[in-house]
Amino acid sequence: MNTNPLLKGTLQTIILKLLESKDRMYGYEITQKVKEVSEGGIMLTEGALYPALHKLEADGFLETTVEIVDGRARKYYRLTEHGGKEVTSKLKEAQAFIDQLQNLLNLKPAIK
């Protein structure tokens, strides 16, 4: 189970990417989708998800609608037009970081 700090930097990218693949999602659904796609390898814990969602909403990347499901209010998140553009930029940024990281990790140790 992966809940390490490495995830923090990419959490917004993960959320935006998930919402790009589906019209709208609610908080719990996002945690379950991440768990499902990563086959339980990545768990969004310690309340990191909601602050990230609220930050993306405040930045105008996400918009919300509230619906009543079984008598309780459920907040759905969806990408705004601005958020749609941000997905591409964030993905490029993440890919570039992964590539650089891979280069660094692939450095061969000096032979002594």
Binding site: T31, L44, T45, E46, G47, Y50, P51, H54, K55, E57, A58
Partner: peptide, 18 residues
């Protein structure tokens, strides 16, 4: 999911700020 009772309050504080 939230890291415990105390984190719920922290989460609310962060959301309020936002």
């Amino acid at each position: 999911d939230f890291g415990g009772y105390d984190n719920l309050m922290k989460l609310e504080k962060a959301s309020k700020k936002m």
